[in-house]
Design a protein around this nucleic acid. Structure first.
Lengths: 338, 338
DNA sequence: TTGTATGCGTTATCAC
DNA sequence: GTGATAACGCATACAA
């Protein structure tokens, strides 16, 4: 920087001002400085700036697993949003491991990131004291709610109700649900199940426990297993609401492999609207939980907290908009000329 | 740090030594220092250390798109390997955009990362001068080879030959290939096509141009489109070698939706062995390109270069081992009791 | 085995 | 509008 200053015939402070878009600089000066920067190929040392300002321009994103399509897509969106506001994202994987989730909060790449976007999967409401940290934190999802942190969530109940209503609207009556977590009262599973139940009851249909397939992990294989168990027990639904798309794809496979037609015999809808869904065969109807909006809100909120630098009087909760995205797995395949 | 020193009754230098595992410290001193650190809840300021040492402990990983399963899984592996050697990974997405790939090389989060693992998709051999950078760089893939950088690749030709031989070994003779890049002489497409051709020729079967489906992008949809075009033109293969798993899954869908049985009528094998493959229906045979080894090699190599600090006399190329992973899409579905 | 002094490249302060 | 100078928190010589 001092070389640039010398070449431009100004002080380092002026160079710094130019680099930081300080408004009160004579145009000529700015041009000269910019020119010198160009000539010398000067690059700002982010580390030194970080030392001086106490900020690094880095934010952490802690997710269970990048390999899960939903989180890969979330990371994608967060990175894009962060870039908009000049932040860089450091991804940390917790593998849904309780210890690692705690570690991320206690000592994330602390002193390396300015704040953290945290998507927990193992921690629960009892752990909410862990969210009382001394750095900006935005929590995603529905596992923990605490006055101590900002929150970005989706409308799990309403979205699940809408998905179920979509199936009801097609005339389906024996609507199974796959991915339930028996006995849980928090988290996405419980909320989505609540929405499912609401829709059924509003339609004058009760919840049939035999139509609820449990599966702790929401993976393709567990989805396939859950529907297989249900069918093997003699219970045959005319529609399935899977609590996420991975489960739904598992369900799809299992149905097809048994010669059950989708959606003629059984309509299927998932949740998350990951890219997989568009390319499944038949393409999978799903609920888009507003991933882009979630990413934008989370980054925006965190950014604000970082800039404010002072602990907020009140924490915020932002809820994203959802949308039902009907595709072939409920509407049917387009007629194909033989 | 000076607070810790004061409490422990030593100098900051001693604290620094302890924190950095400097070996020659009296045990009692170390214990006192560690104790003070604990008491004060002191955390090392990574930024200040970075300023002083010129290293940040961060490495960049530039990939086309995190949403593509292969790259999500690669990132996963790289993050895990980097953690082993105390490095943190900063992911950058290029979106296979030429300009962004150039930007990543010219000015990555430069001065923020100690080195870069770069997986190009748009740059080609003519751009190899861009690889002459003044920071440690490990290039992945087969698009560019340059004496100026370290390289980690997979055995594209051999692996493709093995995949094709697997199909030949099952008695298939009209083996289609999907994902070709007509006219290209570099990159994965050209190499894998070469392996495919080698296997066919060794078996005394020539390459039938009608059995080669082109598709620039290796996505599910392009795979489906390529095989559809081939079938519509009246060409019916008895096996398909798709140049990656996404293409293969597209092929699978298209075949199934036409009522063509896999593998009885057409066997299908992919390349990459992503998790999708295991859960496809039928599960997809594939070639595992040694992703874990690629990640380990890339991180190891980069780490060495960073530690060495001096430009290496010679650059290295490491080639990962591959493995054919046969599954239902070539071996057949297990008998299912009706 | 430990301490002292110095500087890494930037921004903040305050003077001009 | 711009400049001089002191931090930021640490590691490195070198001395002791």
């Amino acid at each position: 920087m001092s070389d640039v200053a010398k070449l431009a015939g100004v002080s380092v402070k002026t160079v710094s001002n130019v680099v930081n878009d300080y408004p009160y600089i004579r145009e000529g000066t700015r041009a000269r400085v910019l020119d010198s920067i160009q000539k010398l190929g000067y690059q700002l040392n982010t580390t030194a700036r970080g030392l001086r300002t106490g900020r690094t321009g880095l934010i952490g994103l802690a997710v269970p697993e990048l390999k899960l399509p939903y989180f890969a897509e979330l990371a994608d969106s967060v990175i894009a949003e962060a870039e908009q506001v000049g932040l860089t994202v450091l991804i940390e994987q917790t593998n849904s491991d309780r210890e690692r989730e705690i570690a991320v909060l206690r000592d994330p790449r602390r002193r390396l990131v300015d704040g953290l976007i945290f998507s927990p999967l193992a921690l629960g409401q009892d752990d909410r004291h862990l969210l009382e940290v001394d750095f900006p934190l935005v929590v995603l999802g529905e596992r923990i709610f605490a006055a101590a942190a900002d929150h970005v969530t989706m409308q799990n109940v309403d979205a699940a109700r809408a998905a179920t209503e979509h199936l009801l609207g097609l005339g389906r009556r024996r609507i199974a649900m796959v991915g339930g977590h028996r006995g849980e009262r928090i988290g996405s599973a419980a909320l989505r199940e609540a929405g499912y139940a609401e829709a059924l009851e509003a339609a004058g249909i009760g919840v049939d426990p035999g139509l609820i397939g449990e599966s702790g992990l929401w993976h393709r294989e567990t989805g396939a297993a859950a529907i297989a168990t249900m069918l093997d027990s003699g219970t045959v639904p005319d529609a399935v609401f899977a609590l996420n798309d991975a489960l739904a794809i598992g369900v799809l496979r299992e149905l097809l492999s048994r010669g059950i037609r989708v959606p003629q015999d059984v309509a299927v809808i998932g949740f998350d609207d990951v890219e997989d869904a568009r390319f499944a065969y038949p393409s999978l109807s799903s609920v888009s939980p507003g991933r882009a909006q979630i990413a934008r809100s989370a980054v925006g909120l965190l950014h604000r907290r970082i800039v404010e630098r002072t602990a907020p009087a009140e924490h915020e909760t932002i809820t994203a908009e959802f949308e039902v995205v009907p595709r072939e797995s409920t509407l049917g395949l387009p007629a194909r000329p033989a």
